[in-house]
Design a protein around this nucleic acid. Structure first.
Lengths: 180, 180
DNA sequence: CTTTTACGTCAGCCATATTGACATATCTAC
DNA sequence: GTAGATATGTCAATATGGCTGACGTAAAAG
């Protein structure tokens, strides 16, 4: 890991700094995901259900393939939680308009309600952190995280568009679906 | 980059921004943890083993209680992977000096080797992200993440000390161990 | 018509987490 | 020294969420 000390170190990426980054990610994710789990337990759901509900809520009409690409799990793993969510009335399926093989997914009102309940504490946590860190730090946070993410998925964060654009998260129908 | 021009909008914490933060965390963690798993599979290990190896390597002589507090899992869950790692010669146990009930954990050479192999790609990923984001963004990244983490664990990141101080990661023997 | 794609499902496997109960060694306090 | 708390280990039972491989169907695309 090239330990070139001295001077205005262009290699300020020393071991310790990198380790701290790794740990920051670990602890932040641990605490970020820690809270919704109790609520989920009340419904007999797990973290996987939360992820599905979240991304369906975020991308109404998302296809199964797109969801698989986001979650990076297998069709079967998704299938299990998804059918549960459909059976329990949190998510609806409808055939695709242009491609009727697809099953476009949407939250029901009940689903939206649960989604909101689940992300509530997470929003509070982030908001608190953003507030005390300040706008400039938030920009840095975003920049670094985007660069940690695989290049293929960085497009999802193209720009916050603080004006409220819904953010084209669906990825235009390129051949990108089903990677892995 | 800071797009907050104009009025110092106190409500820059709008829904969309918070959602993006949540997704950044999800995608970054997904990709950050994605790579070591293949290596682990070669050893018949899972992500839990990685976490144990990592934190033992980071905190030589750590006790089981401290490890439990970090990982936030049950004694039994830890016990399983830990005994495996000890049996396979990646970790050694020795009785505590002041308190002989404790079993202080350390990596063996073999353990250090595996640890290095596992975190290698993660270090590269972070280093790349840090490099292209720049020092200022890195500071923001750290600040926000620390604020996302539960207050109880923020002390672990007291200061990077870019001058090379090893950073007291062990948390002085306060009564902090064993929360939860 | 054939091939490919999108999706579903069945069967079986494994890793990781949980709770609860109990055992042992050791430290601490009285 | 005895009592109680602490640090750790372990057993049993259970659940979740991943995985692979195989197979099936419907529809799009050539």
């Amino acid at each position: 890991m090239a330990d070139v000390k001295g001077g205005p170190n262009p290699l300020f990426l020393r071991e310790e700094e990198l380790r701290q980054a790794m740990e920051l990610l670990f602890f932040a994710y641990r605490d970020f995901t820690g809270e919704p789990d109790q609520i989920l337990a009340d419904y007999g759901f797990g973290r996987a259900h939360h992820r599905v509900i979240y991304f369906v809520g975020r991308n109404p009409g998302i296809t199964v393939s797109e969801l698989l690409a986001i979650l990076r799990i297998t069709k079967q793993s998704l299938s299990r939680v998804l059918s549960q969510l459909v059976a329990d009335g949190f998510i609806t399926q409808r055939p695709g308009l242009r491609d009727r093989r697809q099953r476009l997914l949407d939250l029901t009102d009940k689903g939206r309600e649960l989604e909101n309940k689940l992300t509530e504490q997470q929003r509070v946590r982030i908001a608190r952190a953003y507030r005390s860190a300040g706008a400039e730090a938030v920009e840095g946070f975003r920049t670094v995280l985007i660069n940690i993410i695989d290049a293929a998925d960085r497009g999802r964060f193209d720009r916050p568009e603080l004006a409220g654009r819904p953010a084209a998260a669906k990825t235009p129908p390129t051949k990108t679906a089903g990677r892995r």
